[in-house]
Amino acid sequence: MAQISMNKQPAASSQWHHILYVLRENPVTMLAFALLGMFLLCAILGPALVPYDPLATNAARALEPPSWEHWFGTDNLGRDVFSRVVVATRLDLSISVAAVALSFVIGAMLGAVAGYWGGWLDAVLNRLLDTIMAFPLFVLAMGVVAALGNTIENIIYATALINIPFYARLVRAEVNIRRDAGFAQAAKLAGNGDLRVLALHIFPNALPPMMVQVSLNLGWAILNAAGLSFIGLGVRPPTPEWGIMVAEGANFIVSGEWWLALFPGLWLMLAVFTFNLLGDGLRDMVDPRKRS
């Protein structure tokens, strides 16, 4: 059986073998994929999964510690922390996915052009990226949100802006080392112009290392969005969001109500952790040196 499938689709099947091998070799990566599944489930079905309305207040049951009824306890308005934490998944993930997608597209285009053609284009782009990087990135994001206004779109733009340099640099480097690769030259001999060589031959080969970066950046984008909300620049209460929940919970920690901040914080951490571990696993999967 294995023989037959090998002959039919050798590449696809060897890719699968490799992925399975990485997963088997590395239980941590397996765990990361399982966690990712859970978070996606929460993001898609969130409101349908939770026992309470995340916005419903109940003054009679405010500040209750975790119990069977309220797994993560209740907050100062009697809202169920667990429900709020789970429902917030969709918002936080959407912000980071949208921001990373935006910076991926812009950064990849800038980087590919600079890496392939070089020259003054490259020099200008490099100075531009240096300028962005010269700002403390988080503060730049703060400034953008403060200037443009406190909306979810602006958080996305700000997070995307500070991610662009990483993609542009990475793509520039990956394209640059392949610019004079044998297969790129061969593609030119086959009648492909520069644009086609870049888009169809060089860029797809630069994708695997970028996937790793995407995964790591998704985690970082979540941290940024939550950080912005934490200092009051971003999502506004009462919308459930992890950063705000930690910020609000922080006020109660000194009086011993630890669950308000702990659970959203842990959940947030787990989400970032998942993406970071996933990046490592993806790296193993796409790294040709890891293949036999």
């Binding site: 590395n26 941590v28 930690v246 901040a261 947030l268 952790f273 571990l277």
Partner: peptide, 25 residues
């Protein structure tokens, strides 16, 4: 190797504002 990786990944996954609050608590 795996343990190191998990530990440092956990570290970078902690939002600093949350770590700070946790440590203070």
């Amino acid at each position: 190797d795996h343990l190191c990786r998990v530990l440092v990944t956990a570290g970078v996954s902690m939002p600093t504002f949350f770590t700070g609050i946790l440590l203070i608590y």
